[in-house]
Simulated assay, not measured.
Amino acid sequence: MTTGVPTSPSTTRPRRSRLRRYLPLGLVVWLVLEVWLLTRVAGAAGGPTVFLLLAAGVVAGSVIIKRAGRRAFRNLNEALQRGGSPSRGGGNGLLMLGGLLLIIPGLISDAAGLLLLLPPVQRAVSRWTERTLDRRLRRVVPGGLGDAFQQARMHRPDGKVVQGEVIREDTAEPRGQRPPLTR
């Protein structure tokens, strides 16, 4: 008995990436290690000491995030006032990540956040991240992102794919009024 619904010859689900498979396990292991380390330090140094360490991490992380955000916003304003395009982040993103890791309760995250505040570590992480993203982008889009934007595709209701590009004409139309869509 058939229902009239076409089925694809391949009904297997695509394989999950390693990141999606092991990320939940990694988070659980990290949380267990954080709690274990906090209990060990609390047993050795006392509860108030651990509380002061965690509070200092929150305050320091907040200050770092605020300063990095202000610097990023100032750089963006200066670039826009010059009429140019904004330059690269200059490490503000990694500073903000380090501040966020300091805010998250735990000694392992605090140590990772403090490491990200060091300029040599920032440069190394930045280079590694750039290489990794570039390699993955080349794998997904062989010609790079430039080709991906050049080859915009429109999917029609009948399922056909039409290649094309958007051409905007500079017409003096009143704001808020658009020409009617035609078929």
Results as ranks from 00 to 15, higher is better:
76 L>V: 08
64 I>T: 11
32 V>A: 09
67 R>H: 06
93 G>W: 10
86 P>H: 03
91 G>C: 12
38 L>W: 06
85 S>W: 12
60 A>I: 14
90 G>S: 10
55 A>M: 15
94 L>N: 00
77 N>K: 15
45 A>R: 13
35 V>Q: 11
43 G>F: 04
58 V>Q: 12
63 V>A: 11
68 A>G: 02
32 V>S: 03
73 F>Q: 08
40 R>M: 07
43 G>D: 12
50 V>P: 14
40 R>V: 10
99 G>A: 05
59 V>C: 08
54 L>I: 13
45 A>Q: 12
53 L>H: 05
82 R>P: 01
75 N>C: 00
49 T>D: 09
72 A>Y: 09
50 V>D: 10
46 G>W: 10
42 A>F: 10
67 R>A: 10
76 L>M: 09
50 V>N: 13
29 V>A: 14
46 G>I: 08
80 L>Q: 13
33 L>S: 15
81 Q>D: 11
68 A>D: 01
53 L>D: 05
100 L>M: 15
65 I>G: 13
77 N>R: 14
91 G>K: 14
54 L>K: 03
83 G>L: 00
75 N>Y: 00
68 A>W: 00
54 L>F: 08
69 G>L: 11
52 L>W: 15
35 V>E: 08
41 V>R: 07
80 L>F: 07
71 R>Y: 01
32 V>E: 01
42 A>Y: 05
39 T>F: 15
37 L>M: 04
39 T>M: 15
59 V>P: 05
57 G>R: 04
31 L>Y: 09
57 G>A: 03
51 F>N: 12
68 A>E: 02
96 M>R: 05
